[in-house]
Design a protein around this nucleic acid. Structure first.
Lengths: 169, 169
DNA sequence: ATTGAAATCGGTTCGGC
DNA sequence: GCCGAACCGATTTCAAT
């Protein structure tokens, strides 16, 4: 039940997704070899995964220090009593140094991840965050090192369909 | 190791990087059109960016709920007095639900992002985290919604290199 | 470091199963 | 839905600059 109705995805789709998460530039021919289908079959499946919103894009991953972004921080954002979350989120989205923005449970409305070149820029960025309308306080956690980031993470190894069950699928 | 690559990177490299961050499956021919070089020149530049560690990989981005990962949480991890950070980080790396792991300043040694299917699994995952040798406490922040995540974030708006167009664009 | 040409290989469409 | 063939465009190598 947990797997059956996830957008009509089968085990092969999940294999393809895992392969594309590991290597976003894998060719259809490669993927076909990995999953045991022809390139054209994979092509069609990937197209459907893309247009159904399961795969939302493909991105190169860059070493941040190599592009001059050596400072990372996690910032909790506490709104004022009357602050509007959507308004704050929109303002956060305007700042290019804010890479990710999560609305969270707790007395902070958001936790954002920001990346800047220097601690000087971090200070300036925090000033910009605090100046956003509706923001009362920020709480900053400086990242000392990134041990790992954005790993694939399969939900579970794979559901072994030990006994085929035809009932009401 | 010092990142000597900032010295070796020019504006065209930054353009290529930005383009590949936006679309990790862009063809070399496409990239060449965007930056005003031939496909083979782009091919060589990208190869160097990859082997020098500036571009570390390419990944498909997947809508987490679509693959059965509907619950995200940020967890601060406080070690015991004698806990060894590297050992803890290694143990965190063994858990597939831990997507990212940052060593941070403050009384927590790490902040990790975890993704699981259900709150039930979240509870089990937190149990695993607490059972890691050297971990004293965890502090969990549940993500209610992801406003945005992993945006490109160029350090500079990318200066246009004034490429003369040959065929009336 | 870039180009353009040449050869290989993959992407994409389509007819058929 | 998948395959295989065919066509076309992209990748990749390379000599020359």
């Amino acid at each position: 039940m947990r797997y059956a109705t996830l957008g009509g995805m089968d085990a092969v789709d999940r294999q393809i997704i895992a392969a594309l998460r590991a290597n976003g530039r894998a060719t259809y021919a490669d993927l076909g070899r990995q999953v045991g289908l022809s390139a054209s079959a994979v092509h069609e499946r990937v197209g459907k995964l893309e247009s159904s919103g399961v795969i939302t894009g493909y991105h190169a991953v860059v070493d941040p220090p190599s592009v001059g972004l050596g400072v990372t921080a996690l910032v909790g954002i506490q709104p004022t009593d009357t602050g509007d979350d959507d308004e704050i989120a929109a303002a956060l989205g305007e700042l290019p140094e804010v890479e990710s923005c999560y609305a969270v449970a707790g007395d902070e409305a958001f936790v954002v991840k920001i990346r800047v070149a220097t601690v000087d820029e971090l200070e300036r960025s925090l000033g910009r965050l605090r100046r956003i309308h509706g923001v009362a306080r920020t709480r900053t956690t400086v990242v000392l090192s990134t041990r790992f980031e954005g790993r694939p993470n399969a939900p579970e190894p794979a559901p072994p369909p030990a006994v085929p069950d035809k009932s009401g699928a």
